[in-house]
C-alpha cells in the first residue's frame, strides 16, 4: 500500500518508525531502469531537465535561477558540521559550523573553488553576513540534533544527496537525504529535514525522494522507509520502500518531466 503515515514529532515516534520499518524493500532492476528511461524519453523534449522533490511537489513549476542565501546554505553547511559534532571533532554545533565555514573560505582562497560554489559565495561575504549564515546554520543543525539525539538507533549524516542521470533522456534527478538510521533488523531508514509545514503534495515529494535514492544505488534498492521531518510544524510523514510507493514516485517524476517539457516549449513558443 502507498500509505502515508503522519505522526507528531518526538524521539519515541521516530524510534518506533525506524524500529518497525519493513525488512524488505523494492529494488529497481535493469528492466525497471530501461522502462523508466523510455518513459522519460517519451516526454518529448530535448531540454535538459533537473528534477527533485520540490519540482514534483510544485507540479513542475519553473524555479528562478539558483542563488546562494543563508536559508539554502544552512543544509550544505549544517550536514558536515553535524558530522564533526557526532564524531567528536567539534565540541558544539557553533564551533562545528564555524569550522566548516572557515574550511570553505580557505578552499576558495587557495583557488580550489569554482565561481558560483558555496565556498566562493562565502568568501565574498562580509564578517556580518557570514555571522548571519552561521546563526542560520546553527539553528538548523541544533534543531536536527535536538530531534535525533534521543533516537534509540544508530544514525549517520548522509555523505551526499542521491544523484541519477537518466541515460539518453536528458533528465537529471536529485534526491535529498539528510541522515540514515540503521537498526538491527532493517538496513536503511532515510530521513529528510524540511522547513515550514508539509503541503498537500508532501507525500509525492517523499515518494520521489525514495525513488531517486533507490535509482542512485548500483543495486537499485530503495530504503526500507523514507521519513520526512518538519521540525517547525512538529510533524513526521513517512512512507515504506515498497513497490506501490516506488511506482507512484516514478510516475510523479515522469509527469513532472512532461510538465517541465511543456513549460519549456511554451516559453520557446
Amino acid at each position: 500500500m502507498s500509505t502515508l503515515t503522519i505522526r507528531r514529532l518526538s524521539a519515541i515516534a521516530l524510534s518506533e518508525l525506524a524500529g518497525d520499518a519493513p525488512q524488505e524493500s523494492f529494488s529497481f532492476t535493469d528492466d525497471h531502469r530501461a522502462s523508466l528511461m523510455a518513459r522519460f524519453r517519451a516526454t518529448g523534449t530535448t531540454e535538459h531537465r533537473k528534477l527533485d522533490a520540490w519540482t514534483v511537489e510544485s507540479s513542475g513549476a519553473a524555479s528562478s535561477a539558483f542563488r546562494w542565501s543563508p536559508t539554502n546554505a544552512r543544509r550544505s553547511l549544517g550536514t558536515p558540521a553535524l558530522r564533526l559534532v557526532t564524531s567528536g571533532r567539534a565540541r558544539h554545533v557553533t564551533e562545528a559550523v564555524t569550522l566548516c565555514v572557515e574550511d570553505h573560505v580557505v578552499r576558495a582562497a587557495s583557488g580550489r573553488a569554482r565561481p558560483g560554489s558555496l565556498s566562493y559565495w562565502l568568501t565574498n561575504l562580509s564578517d556580518v553576513q557570514r555571522a548571519v549564515v552561521i546563526a542560520d546554520t546553527v539553528t538548523w543543525a541544533t534543531g536536527l540534533l535536538d530531534v535525533m539525539e534521543p533516537v534509540t538507533y544508530d544514525w549517520t549524516m548522509a555523505e551526499t544527496d542521491a544523484y541519477y542521470d537518466v541515460a539518453t533522456a536528458r533528465v537529471s534527478l536529485r534526491g535529498r537525504r539528510d541522515l540514515c538510521i540503521t537498526t538491527e533488523l532493517t538496513q536503511r531508514v532515510i530521513l529528510r529535514f524540511r522547513g515550514g509545514s508539509p503541503t498537500r503534495s508532501a507525500g509525492m515529494g517523499l515518494r520521489a525522494d525514495l525513488v531517486m535514492d533507490g535509482l542512485s544505488r548500483p543495486d537499485g534498492q530503495t530504503a526500507q522507509r523514507f521519513i520526512g521531518v518538519w521540525p517547525d510544524a512538529g510533524l513526521i510523514l513517512s512512507i515504506d520502500g515498497n513497490v506501490e510507493n516506488a511506482r507512484a514516485g516514478a510516475r510523479s517524476l515522469v509527469r513532472t518531466a512532461m510538465m517541465r517539457g511543456h513549460l519549456a516549449q511554451h516559453i520557446a513558443a
Partner: peptide, 11 residues
Amino acid sequence: QPRTDVSVVQH
C-alpha cells in the same frame, strides 16, 4: 545550543 529566529507553525 542557541537557536535564533526559530519558526513555529501549527495547523
